[in-house]
Structures are given as C-alpha cells and as structure tokens.
Design a protein around this nucleic acid. Structure first.
Lengths: 132, 132
DNA sequence: TCTTGCCTTGACGTCGGCGTCAGGGCTTAC
DNA sequence: GTAAGCCCTGACGCCGACGTCAAGGCAAGA
C-alpha cells in the first residue's frame, strides 16, 4: 500500500509517516516512480508507535519497541530494551504524578485561603444549624 | 535597583525579566541613560510570577495575580480573576493526574505482562514456601 | 585613558512533532 | 488533452519561555 492508505488505515497523516521515516523509525521501500510502499508489517510497527505515543512516550522511546518487532519478535515489548523503557517511564510517571499531586494540594490550599479572605465567600459552612 | 540586581535577588535572569516586560507583565521605569529601574514592589510582583511558574502556571495565567497586586491588593489572589485561574488550574491538574494515573496503570500492566512472558523473569513469587 | 562590568536593542537558536505551503511529477478517467 | 487525485522533496511556521550571541553605550576605578 502507499503512504496515503497506510495513514488512513492507522488514523494518522502522511506528514507524520514521512517524519517517522526521516527519524529512521519507519523506513519505506520505494516503487519505480519513487512512491513509498508499505505492507501490513509496517502497519503493525506504526500501530506500536502510535499506541506508545498515546501513552506519552516520545518518538525516541518507541524506537526499541519498533526495532524489537522488526527483529521478528511477536510483541514490541518482547525485548529487554523495551522493558527498560517501560521501567524508566513508570518511574517518570510516578515522579510526575507525585509532583502534580503536591502542586494540586498547594494550589487547593491557596484557593481555600484566598476564598476565606474574601467577603461573600465560598458558602460558609458555619451557617449550618443542625437539622432545622 | 537595576535589572541585574533584581534578577539576582529573585534568582532568575535578566533575559527572563526583559521577556516578562516584552509581554507587558513586568514593565520597568527607566533612568536617564535608558537603564531599567525596579523597586521592592516589582520584586514582589516577580516573586508572585515565579511562584506560580513553579506551580506550572504559564505566563498568561500569572497575569491576573500580577495585576491584582499592582492594583494595591495585599495578595495576588485577592481578586476574583485570580481565583478563577486557581479553579481552572485545579480542574486541569485533576484531569491530568487522572490521565497520568490511568496511563501509569496501563504501562504497569504491560510491563508485568511482558516480564511474565520472558524467561528468567521478575523473581517469581511462586517459589516461596511458607516459613521455611 | 583604558579596562571592566554593567547596561541597551535586535535577532536567531532551542525542543518535538508535526502542519502547511510551494512547486512539480505520475496515473487514470473522461 | 486535460483535469483530478494521488505522490514527491524541500523548507518555513508553530508553540513557550527563554538562551545565546552580536554590536554597541555608559559609568567607575586604576
């Protein structure tokens, strides 16, 4: 299949595919007139790339998975290098989530403090009076 | 004080200060020779900007806080516009944390599955045998 | 006077992952 | 023959928050 069809099938753009090729991630064969040609294997590689991208992996991080598949392994994560990327990503995610959670708490505290300092604030709880 | 001193006191760079000025966020007075001049009020504004930046606010989001301070309020978040930014940021953080948590779970599951499919895997639990 | 160290403006570079032309070629249908 | 619809290779644009020159001015000490 040609580039347009591959892009359509995978749900991406021809521009992205050319970009991946320029990065050496998804090279293409060429027909006589210079058109790029792809097969179902390439579609599989592309899907692997896109799945990881959705997870927030950047392109370079998808490379071990793609090379693993190209080496003939059934899954992109059948190779140690891919597992290494997974582990690094998990650590990265944990650190990021922890940081964001901390920030969230601080911003929440700031908001609460600021609201409390303002007249006609955030539905003051102290006006509740039992069941009446 | 001049730009270098302000930058040093706040722990940032002169380039950043000129950038903030170019965005209209932190304008400076000028001396006869064209040098920028700042006072302690500007230092306070700058600290507000930097604190929010540390929280991951982008520059535009700090603007209401800075304008609030410049309007004479004791805190940058003494104004409704600032509270609005806080709230939007909280929602944004919640969404992001949720998404990252989901991704973390999925990546973790992928790693576990991939490790299980590999020989000499991740210290198999099944070899434990009671207290002996 | 000369050096040193501050300051000025202007403008290009960075990073990632493409989007979006511009200019041109092949192929097929009409 | 020509229009339509695919394809090709550059190459610049974008976004945010500055970093990093380049070329030059001003002030103060030796």
């Amino acid at each position: 299949m040609r580039i347009g069809e591959l892009a359509a099938r995978a749900g991406t753009t021809t521009r992205a595919l050319r970009y991946y090729e320029s990065r050496g991630l998804l090279p293409a064969r060429r027909t006589g007139n210079g058109y790029r040609t792809y097969d179902d294997g390439d579609l599989k590689l592309l899907r692997q790339i896109m799945t990881l991208q959705d997870f927030g992996f950047d392109l370079e991080e998808t490379r071990p998975f793609v090379e693993c598949l190209r080496a003939g392994h059934p899954e992109g994560d059948s190779c140690p290098a891919s597992l290494g990327v997974y582990r690094r990503k998990l650590a990265e995610l944990d650190a990021l989530i922890e940081q964001l959670t901390s920030v969230r708490a601080q911003v929440g505290a700031q908001l609460a403090r600021a609201e409390a300092a303002v007249p006609g604030g955030p539905e003051p709880k102290c006006e509740l009076g039992g069941h009446a």
